[in-house]
């Protein structure tokens, strides 16, 4: 199977997360991934886009998020690009659910979900553009 690329651009609002999930689902099914893998790709991409909306753009819905799917014979990669604040991996600590519950904290699990469900998660910065690449191998 040759390499194929599919592109979706959404406004930076949570109301479009469902559209992103459908987009990923459609192409993952077309690429013959198993149901479990399709579900894992959907949630990982949802988490990445949710983080961009909340942290990179701080809830401002007047920006764009580019979601590109790159399908190769051995892998399915989703590249999420934004032009907001960068995610500082060095400042990230994996959350402890008991501490978070005691503090009544509602967020902070997205990166953990992405790392556990994907085979490879990579953050890059190119000029003023942030990229998060999520890859699942066959």
């Amino acid at each position: 199977m040759a390499r194929s690329v599919h592109t979706l651009t959404i406004p930076s609002s949570t109301r479009y997360l469902e559209d992103v999930r459908r987009f990923v689902e459609q192409h993952a099914i077309e690429a013959n991934f198993e149901t479990k893998d399709v579900g894992e790709l959907k949630i990982a991409v949802d988490e990445a886009c949710s983080n961009v909306i909340e942290h990179a753009y701080r809830g401002n819905d007047e920006n764009d998020i580019d979601v590109d799917i790159i399908v190769k014979p051995d892998r399915f990669t989703v590249r999420i690009r934004d032009r907001g604040r960068s995610f500082e991996q060095s400042e990230y600590e994996e959350p402890n659910i008991f501490e978070f519950a005691n503090q009544g904290r509602a967020g902070g699990f997205g990166v953990q979900i992405m790392r556990r469900l994907m085979d490879h998660v990579e953050y890059r910065k190119r000029g003023n553009t942030n990229e998060c690449c999520l890859t699942k191998y066959r």
Binding site: R21, S50, F100, G104, R105, G107, Q112
Partner: peptide, 17 residues
């Protein structure tokens, strides 16, 4: 049918209270 971490976070925010 579906839950992401934002949904889980709601349970987290209220459980101790």
């Amino acid at each position: 049918q579906y839950i992401s971490s934002a949904g889980l976070g709601v349970f987290m925010a209220y459980i101790e209270d």
